[in-house]
Design a protein around this nucleic acid. Structure first.
Lengths: 219, 219
DNA sequence: TCGATGCATCTTGTATGCATCACGGACCGT
DNA sequence: ACGGTCCGTGATGCATACAAGATGCATCGA
């Protein structure tokens, strides 16, 4: 069976999630030209909900619509990698700075939440559960951004994370010790947070994102 | 005539621009519940393009769609004001910092562009052309953000600017000397930029945004 | 009197049909 | 051969029709 993520949701949602999933996991490679009709037939629905899904995906930067021609699956370009990482550093760095400026109490709460995620990731790593590990990675950064309590930035970050997912596809052959490195980098960020040193936290964030960039672009 | 901004564009675009304009200029006040049918009839088109426009406006945070009920024009809340201003400070501050870290040449290019906008604004102010003045204000900040050359941040900023427009509506009774103050604050930012002092530039940006906040929320 | 029920109405969700537009290749005149 | 035109094919853009959910109110029963 083809990976139907869909359940008892609206047709619009099914079209959106299914198509997005297929773009993110690479079954629809960048550069592909797809049409509303194709997707509609695959999902056994009319073109109308598919059309709405396409519009949403275009707004998220995953599709590019050409009038009367079709929808192009946007390919990840080096410049997009840079743009995403720059925006991530900006948003996450801001969350860190804001946190360091907040009360020690609040900082501790977030720190505890982050450590919790790290522990789960260690467990996932021990059992070689890549799925859970990736999920933890996503949660770690999300918790961080959530702490800034800014819905606009949080939404932006969600879109950045999706794009990041797709960029990671090309570089699945990350070294066997890369999970360890990620954990260490995350831990370093938490440590800096605990000391309340905003500049240090930013530096460690940058180290982490530089490593991410290297793993994405440097093969 | 009712302010038809539309021309020979697609029905979708007309629906989008017209509805957005009506939300931004306040003819559709926050809290209003509108329907696809209403707008479709007003614009003499079917519900289909209106529907697509509504989806886009929801993604931009201007509408909130309720299934089988209608579309709520989102009211600007104090917390949204804060979120928008925080995001603006983050993005614009980043552009400033990046510029200060760039070559003096590039900085000079942007600085010249900014000064040019300021001159136009002074002209607009002299002739009491409020329209042009506001347009210049928009351009000033856009040029600044564009200098960071990050499409993702630029797009975010465009959406922030739209929301800001709406927030300004309530405070039209800004003092008669407010344009002067805005000009001075903008000039201060350019001055800081010319010296290449990133921290100073950020401080002056913050002063400008604080003034904006005061004018929006403080009555 | 008060709460539950059923209905009228309004709105969205989805399907379908048709017009329009863009592209690609065959055809034709040179 | 070659360049331009014409038309077939396929996609979207929009209109319209129908189905189904949500709300409010009148009505009915205790």
């Amino acid at each position: 069976m083809t990976g139907s993520v869909s359940a008892g949701l609206s047709a619009k949602e099914r079209a959106y999630r299914d198509t997005k999933a297929r773009i993110l996991d690479g079954s629809l490679p960048g550069g592909d030209l797809i049409t509303e009709g194709q997707v509609a037939e695959t999902l056994a629905m009319s073109r109308t909900p598919v059309r709405e899904a396409f519009l949403r995906l275009e707004a998220e930067g995953l599709l590019r619509l050409f009038p009367k021609r079709g929808a192009l699956v946007v390919a990840v370009s080096p410049s997009e990698v840079e743009a995403v990482l720059e925006a991530r550093e900006l948003v996450e760095g801001h969350a860190l700075a804001k946190l360091c400026a907040a009360s020690a109490e609040e900082r501790a709460v977030v720190s505890r939440a982050l450590v919790e995620v790290l522990d789960e990731q260690r467990g996932a790593l021990a059992t070689s559960d890549e799925q859970s590990f990736a999920e933890g990675d996503r949660r770690f950064h999300t918790v961080l951004v959530e702490s800034a309590r800014n819905p606009i930035l949080l939404e932006l970050y969600a879109s950045l994370r999706d794009r990041q997912l797709r960029m990671n596809l090309g570089s699945l052959e990350r070294g066997p010790d890369r999970p360890q490195a990620i954990l260490a980098q995350h831990q370093a960020i938490v440590d800096a947070l605990d000391t309340g040193d905003a500049d240090d936290a930013r530096v460690r964030l940058r180290i982490h994102l530089d490593a991410t960039r290297a793993s994405v672009v440097g093969r």
